[in-house]
């Protein structure tokens, strides 16, 4: 067997390993995710009303919220069968497409609205990483649970 064939086979094995990787977490991580989500939301709300100057609370709250949504997203359903796997894939696709469209369109909408209200203060700016990731996770969860409900 020559070197190139060996390399190709090794590459193929690595690819299959990634493709078949079991990325889902046990079902109880959903509860952990929900608890973390509530804690993050509480921190963000508390920051808004109690300690507005403390930026670290906002940072921790935002990161906590993303982690919480990711935990909920990746935790298995009680019965994780092939239909659920299919719905998961469809929801991921929907969230990915919605995320890209949102990233492209929302800054334009923001700019146009700002331009209509106060043209002199209208500035075009891209969305932040937090808002895009948050949007994609929320869209994923919304679609997944809607698909699941009407399966």
């Amino acid at each position: 067997m020559n070197m190139i064939t060996k390399l190709c086979k090794a590459e193929y094995r690595r690819l299959k390993k990634i493709q078949n990787y079991q990325y889902l977490l046990p079902n109880h991580y959903k509860k952990v995710g929900i608890a973390l989500l509530i804690a993050s939301l509480t921190a963000l709300i508390a920051r808004k009303y109690l300690f507005e100057d403390v930026d670290i609370v906002q940072e921790i709250g935002r990161k906590g919220m993303l982690l919480a949504l990711l935990l909920i997203t990746l935790s298995k359903e009680k019965i994780e069968d092939e239909l659920i796997t299919k719905l998961r894939g469809q929801a991921f696709a929907a969230a990915f497409i919605a995320g890209v469209i949102y990233t492209l369109v929302q800054p334009l909408i923001n700019y146009m609205v700002a331009f209509l209200i106060k043209p002199e203060k209208a500035i075009y700016s891209d969305l932040g990483d937090f808002i895009v990731m948050w949007f994609m996770l929320v869209i994923y969860l919304t679609f997944f649970y809607m698909f699941k409900r009407y399966r």
């Binding site: 009680k78 019965i79 069968d81 092939e82 239909l83 659920i84 399966r151």
Partner: peptide, 22 residues
Amino acid sequence: IGVSRQTINSIEKNRYVPSTVL
């Protein structure tokens, strides 16, 4: 067969085509 009741319902109602394994 190790799936959820809703999956059986979806198959019966022709909303889902099961895999060969199922």
